[in-house]
Amino acid sequence: MKMLVVFEKFPRIRHIGHLDLMRAMQRALRRSGLPVKFSQGFNPHLLLTFAAPLSVGMAGKREIMEVPLGSDVTEAEFLEKINAALPPELPCLSARIVDDKHPASMASLYAAAYEIAIDSEAEALRNAIPSFLAQESIIALRKTKSGEKMVDIRPMIFELKASGDNTIRCTLALSEAATCKPDLLMDALCAHAGLAARPRTIITRLQMYGKDLIPLEML
């Protein structure tokens, strides 16, 4: 069996990178005494997969990982043991037993919702949203490992709105086929609003989704 787990990464530890976070989880699982599984080979490592890495600097409200287990554990027992082994900044919120054959969350991933807290120029950005969305295409410059690439991000924006005086909420494509990172969206929106520099933001990933925007953990 494997456990599909929803956890939170608090803003205080948002600077922890993906690999460090993964190691922290592996160590927590070791501390928990849960029947975890190890890879074969010379340097065995604890088996654990994340639906999607969270960028350095981002907090996460409902992050998802899958933990293969060697023997049966109830969901309540899993949550109790793992939370006793986790620091307060990294709690597990829910756990669901799924079959070993259950498709990996990573493969079902389609989109994610973000909240972007803006330090300054929030009003200008809020006001720019309607005309920004009215564009048929939004060409943005995406930097990748292999270089820079022009992409049309308009089809990857499923939702974009002001969610408070200084916050913006958006739902963006996040899958193997197409991904728009919130940073890329912000760059484009700031350019559209005519801002010379991008204001400082703190981004929180709120939720991940599968097809038809069904919450990933419910698939």
């Binding site: 205080r12 530890i13 600077h15 922890i16 501390r31």
Partner: peptide
């Protein structure tokens, strides 16, 4: 920055 954030187990 993780050098300064604390919150470790």
């Amino acid at each position: 920055p993780a050098r300064y954030t604390g919150g470790e187990m």
